[in-house]
């Protein structure tokens, strides 16, 4: 299972970014073999960042996203995929991964609000 995490720096110790689609880097982490890579999120256009980031998740066969709460456009795209979103606000990538494995991260519902 692969997870995509929006991070500020290309490091496992990096803080989870305040933004999902406009984060500086995405960390793609494979829970099976613990291999990971960082993708520089150098978005060219200023529009449609949300759906583009979700497309990146789909292209990388990601099952879960850990980030700050994505915006409405990103959420609409996520809704159409089978990807789940988890609230990673305030954690480092490393901490969030641990919490995810222990089932301690809160899932962000795509269907209803609070």
């Amino acid at each position: 299972m692969k997870i995509m995490i929006a991070v500020d720096q290309p490091s496992l110790d990096s803080k989870i970014s305040d933004r999902f689609a406009r984060t500086a880097y995405f960390l793609i982490y494979d829970l099976q073999d613990q291999k990971y890579q960082f993708i520089n999120n150098d978005i060219e256009t200023k529009h449609g960042a949300g759906p583009k980031a979700v497309q990146l998740a789909i292209d990388n066969k990601v099952s879960a996203i850990i980030s700050a709460i994505p915006g409405e456009n990103a959420m609409d795209a996520i809704k159409e995929s089978k990807i789940k979103v988890y609230d990673g606000r305030g954690f480092s990538a490393k901490e969030a991964l641990e919490k995810f494995k222990n089932g301690e991260l809160k899932e962000v519902s795509t269907t209803h609000h609070l």
Binding site: I69, G71, E72, M75, D87, V108, H113, L114
Partner: peptide, 8 residues
């Protein structure tokens, strides 16, 4: 309010 709720 709806917008802020979206971002929890």
């Amino acid at each position: 309010v709806e917008t802020v709720r979206h971002f929890r």
